[in-house]
Write a protein that binds this DNA or RNA. Structure first.
Length: 229
DNA sequence: GCGACAG
DNA sequence: ATCTTGTCGC
């Protein structure tokens, strides 16, 4: 698919923060998409002691959740991991992976926060805005915000609150496991985000999209080894 | 000043 | 995230 070039990428934390404060106004927090046929999981892993960044995309059919296409991209790591600035470390390689994908996804499920971020611009927002695609933040742990205990029943959730603001939801996708931190990234409402995360989740804690992307991002084997890619 | 802190 | 062995539970 068509993706914008990475140019003027910030080199310092100060510049990155300034860019977040500028771009966060471009986030569309309401449903803005048509029929969903393909959902994609996005995940990033590292090789060579962190010197190489590896981004994986897994495109699945919806609602069947059958694997449709995968891709992996590798690039030198150029930004350190700083809480709140994760997207600057991972997005360049993710965009390279998206550029290789044949099937443009109708919805992205990103590993990390969306609006549930100190400046309301987590990686799901950043990627959604740059790729101009609906995106959801699916994080395995909390970055900011407080919440009440979440009932152990699958599908139950509690609002995630920060500074009297509802920034996301803490969702129980599976009983007796840690809940997921869901927040809108771009062109989707929080309610729809929760709905889609549930519809992409079967018997495991993580959505199928994320599970496939995780598997690819962790493997040192190229995608589609038995086919061509 | 002292913790907390997505991946 | 990554490193890294065995171990608890369905």
């Amino acid at each position: 698919m068509q993706v914008p070039k990475i140019e003027n990428w910030p080199q310092t934390a100060q510049d990155a923060i300034q860019l977040q404060k500028q771009l966060c106004s471009q986030v569309i927090p309401t449903d803005d998409f048509n029929e969903v046929r393909f959902v994609a999981g996005v995940d990033v892993g590292f090789e060579n002691q962190g010197k190489t960044t590896r981004a994986a995309i897994a495109v699945l059919t919806w609602p069947e959740l059958k694997l449709h296409e995968t891709t992996i991209a590798r690039q030198p790591t150029k930004f350190p991991y700083i809480p709140g600035l994760l997207s600057f470390r991972e997005i360049p390689t993710v965009l390279a992976a998206l550029a290789q994908i044949q099937t443009t996804p109708d919805l992205l499920l990103c590993d990390g926060q969306g609006l549930a971020h100190p400046r309301r611009f987590g990686i799901a927002c950043h990627l959604g805005v740059l790729a101009d695609l609906p995106a959801i933040g699916v994080a395995k742990s909390r970055l900011v915000g407080k919440h009440e205990p979440v009932d152990q029943t699958r599908g139950n959730w509690q609002p995630l609150i920060d500074k009297d603001e509802r920034i996301g939801a803490v969702l129980r996708t599976r009983p007796n496991t840690k809940p997921l931190y869901i927040s809108l990234g771009h062109r989707i409402s929080l309610d729809s985000a929760i709905e889609y995360v549930m519809s992409c989740t079967t018997r495991y804690r993580l959505p199928e999209t994320t599970r496939w992307a995780d598997k690819l991002a962790s493997s040192k084997i190229p995608p589609n080894p038995e086919k061509r890619s």
